[in-house]
């Protein structure tokens, strides 16, 4: 398998802030490689150093065998970029934008086919300004595909989208991968990474703290189970803390959240509730997910304000 991105000890500093701190990883041809982490973790900065839109302070980066600090134009010829903050000039139509951007490349593909593949063929004469959020994001994906890229960068694409549009965009990204284009994406939605990515790098405070397949990352947590429920009385936090299989218990938004180890953890918790004659409602059992991987690696939740 070919390596399309090779990144070694990449660092980028803004004043006193080390935004990217010695990050190394490789992206293989044909995979969806995801970079996850909280807002401000340095994902976009890191991605933009790889894309050649920012200059790194140290480390080596190779994209398709070229250095983005030296050959940005040649890299842009062969990769597609979907940027987190970007726009099109006002009062431009979808078809005009696609035709315009196609003309910037030596070997553009058929942009009409790209629009058809993305379900935008009926919007060819619509103003980009007038599209819905999901449609506009698909236009930006189309712009990133006009040069038939070998590799496409996708930065926080679903952040502003409703769940339905988000799922549609995921399908689009899977199709891109299935057509042979490597995808390097960033997201702060754990679900997005779980559903979409072949491999995931977790970034926190500019550092890469884990890198593996989603399954391997979750298995590394050693079968932790998370239970959430409400009770018709005082939440039995102190009692639960006596359980040997319990790892952590807290109250969050009126619910009890208990994490524990072992196959009988859920049964033990229910037994204790029965002993205390408490009725548990809305009882849910969750296998661990990437959110929990992040929590166990950093000791804090991914999203600010979610418990603790």
């Amino acid at each position: 398998m070919n390596t399309v991105i090779r990144c070694q000890d990449l660092s980028k500093r803004y004043g006193d802030l080390l935004a990217v701190d010695g990050v190394s990883f490789e992206v293989q041809q044909g995979e969806i490689f995801g970079m996850i982490g909280p807002n401000g973790a340095g994902k976009s900065t890191l991605m933009e150093c790889v894309e050649g839109l920012r200059t790194r302070d140290s480390g080596t980066v190779e994209v398709l065998g070229m250095d983005p600090a030296k050959d940005a134009a040649e890299i842009h010829e062969r990769v597609g970029l979907q940027l987190q903050t970007s726009a099109l000039p006002p009062r431009i139509k979808v078809g005009e934008a696609l035709q315009l951007f196609s003309s910037f490349y030596r070997n553009p593909g058929d942009w009409r086919k790209t629009l058809r593949d993305l379900g935008l063929d009926e919007k060819v004469n619509s103003y980009v300004d007038k599209l819905s959020g999901g449609q506009r994001q698909r236009v930006f994906i189309a712009l990133a595909l006009v040069n038939n890229p070998e590799l496409i960068f996708v930065d926080e694409i679903t952040t502003a989208l409703d769940p339905q549009s988000r799922h549609a965009v995921w399908d689009v990204i899977r199709d891109i991968r299935d057509n042979g284009t490597t995808v390097f994406l960033t997201t702060h939605f754990m679900e997005e990474a779980e559903r979409l990515c072949d491999r995931v790098a977790i970034v926190d405070h500019g550092r890469l703290i884990a890198l593996d397949t989603v399954t391997n990352l979750i298995n590394s947590l050693d079968g932790e189970t998370k239970l959430t429920f409400t009770v018709n009385g005082r939440p039995p936090i102190r009692e639960l803390q006596q359980l040997p299989s319990l790892i952590h218990v807290e109250r969050s938004e009126g619910r009890v959240v208990a994490r524990g180890k072992g196959r009988t953890f859920a049964q033990e918790v229910m037994g204790m509730l029965a002993d205390l004659q408490l009725v548990a409602e809305d009882f849910r059992s969750e296998q661990p997910n990437l959110e929990d991987v992040f929590l166990s690696l950093t000791g804090r939740p991914m999203r600010e304000g979610s418990g603790q």
């Binding site: 839109l53 940027l83 970007s86 726009a87």
Partner: peptide
């Protein structure tokens, strides 16, 4: 300046356009 503010010029920078 409006096109620079809203990222429209930045999108051009992400292409081989000089």
């Amino acid at each position: 300046v409006g096109q620079r503010d809203n990222g429209a010029l930045r999108r051009f920078r992400a292409t081989p356009l000089k």
